[in-house]
Simulated assay, not measured.
Amino acid sequence: MKHLLGIQHCTASDLERMIELGEAAKRDRGSAHSAHAKLLDNQVWGLIFSKASTRTRVSFEVGVREMGGTSLYLSARDMQLGRGEPIEDTARVLGRMVHGAIIRTFEQSDVETFAKYSGIPTINALTDEEHPCQIIADLLTVRERFGTWEGRKIVYLGDGDNNMSRSWMWAAERLGFELVIAAPEMCMPSKEYQQQFSSGHVTFTGDVESAVADASVLYTDVWVSMGQEDMEDNGREAALQAFQVNHEMVKKAADDAIVLHCLPAYRGKEITAELLEERQQEIFTQAENRLHAQKGVMQYLVRG
């Protein structure tokens, strides 16, 4: 039984294989003879979502359908989970009725518990801890543009302690590319968390100038993650202003640098409106690649 619970749980070969399958899915989309066209025939996959979604929901629903299966959307408020049923019981029930589960929720432990008790392939479609599906699409995008991530410097700017930054850290640790987390001190992960990345592939800095110098990828995300909108600011947004992705920052990066954003974007905050529009081809290709990456993930979990 294979699951995608987080990049931390993956090996380098797991990641490579899912990306390769995603690339093939993109190349072969629409072909009745593709390796995945009928893979989910007569299968129903449950999408269990406690958080709002655009790209994740659409990409998985379309992906399941294009692979011959049917998706069943289940929001938490429509299920007994919303009334306090233990995740273990929900998992045991759904594991007898559907063939796979795609879960977008708050607690990482909920996804891991579901996988343990359901007996079906389980995909983390976002938790507060990690967003592995986005990272696989991002790595697919980087390789599509440069041919490899080896020898490329990827810089993550903004909130250095959210699900996206943590997933990037684990990806760099597993695959061995250079990742720089550039963030104000108040937005950095704890020292204990940072100490898990001792290989030298991941560095943490508050120096924007050195971070973006010669970077191949400038990557950013919203400054306030979903579910944290009521968090007190305490000077956080003011500190993050220096890490906004803008034209001046791009000038300091490598000549062929790309700009990526996992969306949704708040123009004028983590990225300027002008730069987002200028680089929209890169950013929306990245968004499209969610569909192909999800197909690669499902194919890997079902077939290997």
Rank of each mutant, 00 (worst) to 15 (best):
P132N: 11
C133R: 07
C133A: 12
Q134C: 04
I135C: 01
I136H: 02
I136K: 03
I136P: 02
I136N: 03
A137K: 02
A137Q: 03
D138S: 07
L139I: 09
L139G: 03
L140R: 12
T141H: 05
T141G: 01
T141I: 09
R143D: 04
R143Y: 07
R143M: 04
F146T: 06
G147I: 11
G147W: 11
T148K: 10
E150Y: 03
R152Q: 11
R152V: 04
K153G: 01
I154Y: 01
I154G: 00
V155Q: 01
V155C: 00
Y156H: 10
Y156A: 06
G158H: 09
D159Y: 08
D159W: 04
D159C: 01
D159I: 03
D161I: 01
D161P: 00
N162D: 15
N163K: 14
N163T: 13
M164P: 01
S165N: 09
S165E: 13
S165K: 08
R166S: 12
S167E: 11
W168I: 04
M169T: 07
M169P: 00
W170C: 01
A172G: 07
A172M: 10
A172E: 13
E173M: 01
R174V: 06
R174S: 11
L175P: 02
L175M: 11
G176Q: 11
G176Y: 12
F177R: 01
V180C: 01
A182G: 02
A182M: 04
P184F: 10
P184T: 14
C187D: 14
C187K: 06
P189I: 14
P189T: 14
P189Q: 14
S190Q: 06
Y193D: 07
Q196M: 08
S198A: 15
S199F: 04
S199E: 14
G200A: 07
G200F: 12
H201D: 08
T203P: 00
T203R: 15
G206D: 15
G206Q: 15
D207V: 06
D207S: 05
V208L: 04
S210Q: 15
S210A: 15
A211H: 08
V212C: 06
V212R: 06
A213G: 04
A213T: 15
D214G: 03
A215R: 06
V217F: 10
Y219R: 04
Y219A: 05
T220G: 09
T220M: 08
T220E: 02
D221G: 05
D221T: 10
